[in-house]
């Protein structure tokens, strides 16, 4: 059985003046490993390879990376799903500054997340028990609250590439709609007025890369459409 050809993006700011691709041959012994397991094999031989990882089951969002051109989570992406012609190219998430190898600086991504005020706002007095919410209202949060902040979507979005400082991006907007859609949140108008400028929401051009890459199967484009509808309803 031939070994898997892996081409890995390498950059160490202390020693490399520019990033380069390093070739590895990995013997997977015919197993359909996850990409993360493959990286672990590589790291056993070359401990200098850097990547983030934590839960290894697709819920923490640490190991978002670009695998043969598509963003995804290394820990839940089997080789059989991405390897083409026995070749795998691994790169960091596009559009963000690289710290080292597959590790990117996610500050801009987190800033956009914080900007939409990602927390429930409710001015009414706190009841002695929980706030009630009908199952139907709760259902509206499905497909929204499950985001793991892996940044696969935002870093696959050309609008986010061009304006990461002004366009909230699919992850942040999904989160924003998670609160707009929550029957317990009372800050709808405030949230909407923070979003009506030409960049925050309206830079979305419906390219839908976000939907294509989301490892949790979420649909930020639909959420963005809903925000637009709410803005429209609010303004007319």
């Amino acid at each position: 059985m031939s070994k898997l050809q892996v081409s890995l993006y390498r950059y160490n700011p202390e020693t490399d003046s520019a990033p380069y691709m390093q070739e590895f041959e990995v013997d997977t012994q015919g197993r359909d490993l996850m990409v993360l397991n493959l990286l672990e094999l590589i790291k056993q031989d070359d401990t200098t390879v850097a990547y983030r990882r934590s839960c290894r089951e697709g819920v923490c969002g640490s190991d978002g990376m670009n695998m043969n051109g598509t963003n995804g989570l290394a820990c839940i992406t089997p080789l059989s799903q991405v390897v083409k012609n026995n070749k795998l190219v691994l790169r960091p998430l596009p559009g963000l500054p690289v710290v080292r190898d597959l590790v990117v600086d996610m500050s801009l991504f987190y800033q956009q997340y914080e900007r939409i005020q990602p927390y429930l706002k409710n001015d009414s007095p706190v009841p002695a028990i929980e706030r009630l919410q009908s199952p139907e209202d709760r259902d509206k949060l499905d497909g929204l609250y499950e985001c793991i902040l892996c940044a696969c979507c935002s870093t696959a979005c050309p609008s986010f590439w061009w304006n990461p400082d002004k366009f909230v991006g699919p992850a942040g907007l999904l989160k924003s709609y998670r609160f707009l859609a929550d029957s317990r949140d009372t800050a709808t108008n405030e949230r909407l007025s923070d979003l009506e400028d030409p960049f925050s929401v309206f830079r979305c051009r419906g390219i839908m890369n976000c939907v294509a890459v989301c490892p949790k199967g979420l649909n930020p484009t639909r959420a963005i459409g809903k925000i637009r509808e709410m803005l429209l309803a609010n303004a007319t």
């Binding site: 927390y119 706190v126 002695a128 028990i129 929980e130 919410q133 199952p135 949060l141 317990r184 949140d185």
Partner: peptide, 20 residues
């Protein structure tokens, strides 16, 4: 402590009567 979490926004699943 659990009610506080709910007030903070934790999206608990619900019974028909709206409770957690």
């Amino acid at each position: 402590a659990v009610f506080e979490l709910e007030h903070m926004g934790l999206p608990f699943s619900r019974f028909d009567n709206g409770r957690i």
